[in-house]
């Protein structure tokens, strides 16, 4: 029995086979228990989407709220109960689309909460519509035309907003995911971790894992200095691949 099982409850997730969110759930359980947190001192707040069912699969306190609004609910809770670890687990639709306004202002208010975006670049719960992080030109199964709009780059967005902790992880790289989750949770301000968590059913098939493994590049192995905002900006302007690791830490 792994230590993570202290945090994980017996409920069977509704996620499809091959969903990246399984890895995120495993990673979160390991990260929290690794930090020695009591599950009852942790509150997971989510919005709506496949990813937002995550709180219900844990022994932490959880609130699966409404679409896009996890951040202000979490902020209100944290201000009321500063002793709790408050973590938002949400999807790219929640955070970069319907609830996008709250992201900027959460960064401005800088409450010590953690945001894990489970970014699959698709609306999975509603079966395959484009999301703000779907690359332009992608042919979605629900659309007549390939995606016309340019996509949001979560890292560039957060850097421009002035977020104090910006990182990206890949769900299938469990060890690195856990490490980055722990750093984000321990960060004393608002922290952001974008987790590439594939949806093979509605975007890219199982081949997407192979593609991500090939195209991700670890920032810290590449000698990136996370304290340097200019280096972060330069890196994003001319990426060698999909960056994983801490992009910026103030």
């Amino acid at each position: 029995m792994s230590t993570a099982s202290l945090f994980r409850n017996a409920t069977e997730p509704v996620w499809c086979d091959g969903c990246g969110d399984f890895h995120v759930l495993d990673g979160l359980c390991t990260a929290i228990t690794g930090l020695g947190r009591d599950p009852r001192e942790v509150v997971l707040i989510s919005g709506i989407g496949c990813s937002s069912r995550l709180p219900g699969y844990t022994n932490a306190h959880g609130f699966n709220s409404i679409h896009g609004r996890a951040l202000p609910i979490a902020t209100g809770l944290k201000l009321a109960r500063p002793e709790l670890d408050v973590i938002v687990t949400a999807g790219d639709g929640d955070i970069f689309s319907i609830g996008a306004a709250h992201l900027m202002h959460s960064v401005r208010r800088n409450p010590p909460i953690t945001l894990f975006v489970m970014d699959n670049g698709v609306y999975g719960l509603t079966k395959g519509q484009q999301s703000p992080t779907t690359p332009a030109g992608t042919q979605m199964r629900t659309a007549a035309q390939p995606v016309q709009e340019s996509s949001v780059n979560p890292l560039s967005l957060m850097l421009s907003l002035g977020c104090g902790f910006i990182a990206q992880a890949y769900s299938a790289d469990q060890a690195r995911l856990v490490e980055l989750m722990q750093q984000a949770i321990e960060y004393p301000g608002f922290s952001f971790l974008n987790i590439l968590s594939p949806c093979p059913v509605f975007r890219g098939g199982m081949g997407i894992y192979k593609e991500l493994r090939r195209s991700t590049t670890d920032l810290q192995q590449d000698g990136h200095d996370p304290q340097d905002p200019r280096a972060a900006a330069t890196l994003l302007a001319d990426p060698a691949g999909i960056p994983v690791g801490v992009l910026y830490r103030r």
Partner: peptide, 25 residues
Amino acid sequence: TCIQAEDEIAAACLTLGAGLGGVRS
């Protein structure tokens, strides 16, 4: 705590979140 929220929805959600934590809001 008093917060001027970014919009009316956030104001309601912040209030709900504080209430979730047991604070009259």
